[in-house]
Design a binder for these strands. Structure first.
Lengths: 109, 109
DNA sequence: CTTTCATATCGATGACCTTCGATGTATTGA
DNA sequence: TCAATACATCGAAGGTCATCGATATGAAAG
């Protein structure tokens, strides 16, 4: 007797999965999630790296590392303002993740 | 002159961040994302491990490893049905992630 | 009872990731 | 021009993760 042998039509292919997983992995770190939370809570929706080090309790290179990962994932953008870089969220990317989690799911009861 | 010095009220604390990041990290892998996609697309909403190996192109222990991570994150549950284990999605956990991405964000324009 | 099949666990390997000190780059202010 | 500040990059150390062969467990079938 065989198992269920379900049909896997319309399933994420490897490329789509890699793309979405990249976004999720970028957010799948406590430090980066807190950075995103801080940017969302910040006045004007922006903050610079120097303001993140103390609340996060991390050294400057570490914060810069995480900001880079978020930037390369397209989740934040940094704009140079004189001596500082003002980081802000890219709302479209967060929506993209939400959409990816909503699609391809069976209808809720 | 100082920087923006934003107020970080209502920001995720370390514990909350670790919990949500755990869920995101569990999904932040191409293989696991495809597994979730497959379970969502499967007839009856369930599938057993043996049906996943071939489409994923991975060895059985590797698939079992990823199923375990998804199970420990609470994203799937496995029910033993004779020789097979039928895995299915836990919709509440996916909603939990969506909610975490929706809260604490400034109002959309 | 033995064989067969689905699944879980173990151990090893190689890759990746987080963290930070040291250092480089860029911009401002004196 | 020179000192100070914000940020990026480099290199190293330590931990974690994905992968798989070998092996164990558990259940059905002959």
């Amino acid at each position: 007797m065989d198992c269920c042998t379900p049909v896997f039509a319309g399933v994420l292919d490897a490329d789509e999965a890699a793309q979405t997983a990249g976004l999720l992995a970028a957010l799948g770190d406590p430090v980066r999630l807190r950075i995103v939370s801080m940017l969302a809570a910040a006045r004007e929706g922006t903050a610079c790296g120097c303001d993140l080090e103390a609340p996060l309790g991390l050294a400057q290179p570490t914060v810069s590392h995480h900001l880079r990962i978020l930037r390369e994932a397209g989740l934040i953008v940094g704009e140079r303002k004189g001596r500082w870089v003002h980081y802000s969220l890219v709302r479209e990317r967060l929506d993209e993740i939400r959409d990816a989690l909503s699609q391809r799911l069976p209808e809720p009861v």
